[in-house]
Design a protein around this nucleic acid. Structure first.
Lengths: 128, 128
DNA sequence: ATAAGGGTTCCATTCACTGGAAGGTCAACA
DNA sequence: TGTTGACCTTCCAGTGAATGGAACCCTTAT
């Protein structure tokens, strides 16, 4: 299969698939004409990557997850640890954003948003 | 004032302050020895930037906010619009993360996390 | 004289792509 | 057979917002 078909099947842009080969996440074969030739297993791997990335795992997480997936002797504890660390990252990020949101929405509510220059948002940023 | 003092006062790393000068957010004077010489107004501006960045505004937002702050004829509506757009970005990001979190936490709960290879997390990623 | 602790510039790296240029390959159609 | 258009290839540069490091200059104290 050529890269365009794989892009359609996996939902990943061709550019991204080439990038994933670059950094060693997939190793498609090559046809005589130099085109990448993807096996069914490559397509499967790329779909796996797409879903892992959609869950926010980093590329390095994905690399580890793929390795664990390929290792039938893995301990599920290893997978779970990666996922739990990622869950923590997400929770911290949500907490950070939620705090920003609270402050910001408070300021937005306080701002008249009309033609006059007086503005509590700027006042807060300037610590006036 | 030298950059180190300003870094201490504003809470921004010296590297970041140099970067902000690079991209035209501040324009400190220079002493005879070539050192940056920060006025009170520069320090104030940098503190403003630090707070705006802490609220998650982009650098370009910060540039606009600084311009509005300097313009005593501004309409508060302009400030409010920037803040509201940012609030939307934050809300979208929180929604995205919350959805990731839900899926991921579901998978983590389903995973035994022991020495056995069976793993619902990998199974889900592989769409098995 | 020299050492410590400032400061300076410039270049490379981060993360995960994405855009674009320049060019090779292939299938279909006139 | 020629050519068009849709593929494919590689390589280089840019994104955002810094951060790390090298190599070097300035100031002050010992």
């Amino acid at each position: 299969m050529n890269i365009g078909d794989v892009a359609d099947l996996s939902g990943l842009p061709a550019k991204t698939i080439r990038y994933y080969e670059d950094i060693g996440l997939v190793e498609p074969l090559r046809s005589a004409n130099g085109y990448r030739s993807f096996r069914q297993s490559d397509v499967h791997k790329l779909a796996f990557l797409g879903r892992a990335r959609a869950l926010g795992f980093t590329i390095e997480d994905c690399r580890s997850l793929l390795k664990l997936y390929a290792d039938t002797d893995r301990a599920s504890a290893e997978v779970k640890q990666i996922a739990e660390e990622h869950l923590d990252r997400i929770d911290r990020k949500i907490a950070e954003l939620t705090e920003m949101r609270a402050t910001l929405s408070h300021l937005v509510d306080a701002c008249a948003g009309d033609h006059r220059p007086n503005c509590p948002i700027l006042a807060d940023l300037a610590m006036e």
